[in-house]
Simulated assay, not measured.
Amino acid sequence: MLQKLIGHDLQGLFDQLPLAATLVDEQENLLWVNEKFCTLFGREAKDFADNTFRDLPCDTALTPLGKEPLYYVPPAQGREEHWLRARVDKIEAESGSYEIRYFFEVSDFVQVVSEQMQLNEMLAKKNTVDLVTGLPNRQALWPLLESLVSRSRRYGNDLTIIVMQVGLPEVSKDETGERQRLNALMSVKYFLKDQMRWADIVGRLDGGEFLLALPETPEASSADLIEKIRTGITNIQVTDIAGERQPITAVFGVSAWRKGDDVASLIRRAQEQLPPIVPDDNVRPFRRPR
């Protein structure tokens, strides 16, 4: 069917589509683009000649909308910022396989979701669950830790507290950077849950501070877990302000229960042991003033 359409006819059909669309071959070469596609990227059709889909000035990103990646088109001269969801229709022809890719504008929806996540984070102080990560927050952690401290006082059980401070490369200060920050926190949460025993407690204190409580564990035995987390967390990466993928980093403070300790002194001693996040000025900790 494609072979029966001359270029002018095919371009006319594309331009009548209500969405931005492009036709690509198996090598992702851009064969056709419609007017809405040109408007989206602030270019003319001739500017896409000899381009592949990978040459387009857009990035894929996981967003709060779910696991399906969206396409992010950053603002530039002649175009605004766009968040897009793609739909792909495959076409088989005698000359090969092709795809028509349609792009749906979802920028307003992404904006609403982002604002909701920021609001949830502010409301977390009034709840027992951190609304960004779903982990116990400071208010919820306190009674849990008091119970563990009480057991240590009564029976002399070991109890180790780890405070982990997360930092990430400098990201943009716009909504895209904020979304990266929130997504990074979620990734850290899932990673930590995978490393912990069923009896351990994982919670989020403030900003990028996470608390790990290890009952029946002496301080020396926590070293292996810390090293495992320190190494594994670098697999979580974000796009820095220069557009390069960089790993998240973490530093740790540890304290073990001593006679006379309460929850506040345990946490304070662990926080006092936190070293600088990294010596690199490009890394910004999440830490907030206390």
Rank of each mutant, 00 (worst) to 15 (best):
L5Y: 14
F14R: 05
D15Q: 06
L17Q: 05
A21N: 02
F37P: 00
C38A: 05
K46Q: 06
D50E: 11
N51C: 15
N51V: 15
C58A: 13
T63Q: 02
V73L: 08
P74L: 12
A76Q: 06
Q77I: 15
R79N: 06
W83G: 03
R87K: 13
V88E: 09
S95H: 11
R101K: 10
F103N: 00
F103K: 00
F104E: 08
S114I: 14
A124S: 15
K125N: 13
K125W: 13
T128C: 10
D130A: 07
L131F: 03
V132C: 04
N137I: 05
L148Q: 13
Y155R: 02
Q165E: 10
L168N: 04
V171P: 01
R179P: 08
R181G: 02
R181I: 05
L182I: 10
K193G: 07
D194M: 09
R197S: 00
G208S: 01
P215A: 03
P218Q: 11
E219F: 09
A220M: 13
S221D: 14
A223V: 15
E227F: 11
E227V: 12
K228L: 14
I229D: 01
I236R: 03
V238H: 04
D240W: 06
D240G: 04
G243F: 05
P247I: 06
R258Y: 10
K259M: 15
I267K: 08
P275N: 03
P275C: 05
P285G: 09
F286A: 08
R290F: 15
R290N: 15
